[in-house]
Simulated scan of single mutants.
Amino acid sequence: MKGSFAKYAQESSTEVTFYYIDSHTETFSLPINAQEFQAQLQQLLKQPWITFHLIDQTICICTEKVMKIEIIPPINQMQGEGVFANSQRITALQRNAGRY
């Protein structure tokens, strides 16, 4: 997406990817901005189940089975203990590439 539509889409929706213990992943697009999602995130993670109503079905996710959550756009406003600002991801390929 390019131009003002891409900016609008990014500001008015949040993409959330769940990585499960069994190595499966699922990605959802939520009709809220990242700040609204951030406001709910801590409470959501305390719930045993999270429910997503889609057009054609309802999906319930057991938070106990989730290993990692990725959120786009980033929630840079999150601060406090256990939150590391200005972090960078270094994959195995990037680490090994620098040694040769």
Rank of each mutant, 00 (worst) to 15 (best):
K2H: 14
K2W: 15
K2R: 15
G3V: 14
G3F: 13
S4D: 13
F5Y: 12
F5N: 08
A6S: 11
A6F: 13
A6Q: 11
K7E: 14
Y8F: 15
Y8Q: 12
Q10I: 13
Q10S: 14
Q10M: 15
S12L: 15
S12D: 12
S12Y: 15
S13E: 11
E15F: 06
Y19P: 01
Y19Q: 04
Y20K: 12
Y20Q: 11
I21V: 15
I21Y: 15
I21A: 15
D22T: 15
D22E: 15
S23V: 13
S23M: 15
H24D: 10
H24N: 11
T25P: 00
T25F: 02
E26N: 03
T27R: 04
T27H: 01
T27D: 02
T27W: 02
S29A: 09
S29V: 14
L30I: 13
L30K: 07
P31A: 11
N33Y: 05
A34K: 02
Q35W: 04
E36N: 07
Q38G: 03
Q38W: 00
A39I: 03
A39G: 02
A39C: 02
Q40E: 02
L41S: 01
Q42V: 10
Q43N: 06
L44G: 03
L44W: 05
L45Y: 06
K46S: 08
Q47F: 00
Q47G: 02
P48V: 04
P48D: 05
W49Y: 10
W49E: 10
W49L: 12
T51V: 12
F52I: 05
F52Y: 07
F52N: 03
H53L: 14
H53N: 14
L54V: 10
I55L: 14
I55T: 14
T58D: 08
T58V: 12
I59V: 12
C60H: 10
I61R: 03
I61M: 03
C62G: 10
C62D: 13
T63M: 09
E64A: 14
E64F: 14
V66I: 06
V66P: 02
K68Y: 00
K68I: 01
I69D: 01
E70M: 04
I72H: 03
P73S: 05
P73M: 06
P73W: 03
I75H: 00
I75D: 00
N76D: 05
Q77M: 08
M78F: 00
M78G: 00
Q79N: 09
Q79H: 10
E81A: 10
G82T: 09
V83W: 05
A85E: 13
A85D: 12
A85I: 11
A85Q: 14
N86H: 13
N86M: 12
S87Q: 09
S87H: 10
S87M: 10
Q88K: 14
Q88P: 04
R89H: 10
R89T: 11
I90D: 03
T91G: 05
T91D: 06
A92Y: 11
L93P: 04
L93Y: 09
L93K: 10
R95K: 08
R95P: 01
N96T: 08
A97G: 02
A97R: 07
A97N: 06
R99N: 06
R99C: 04
Y100P: 10
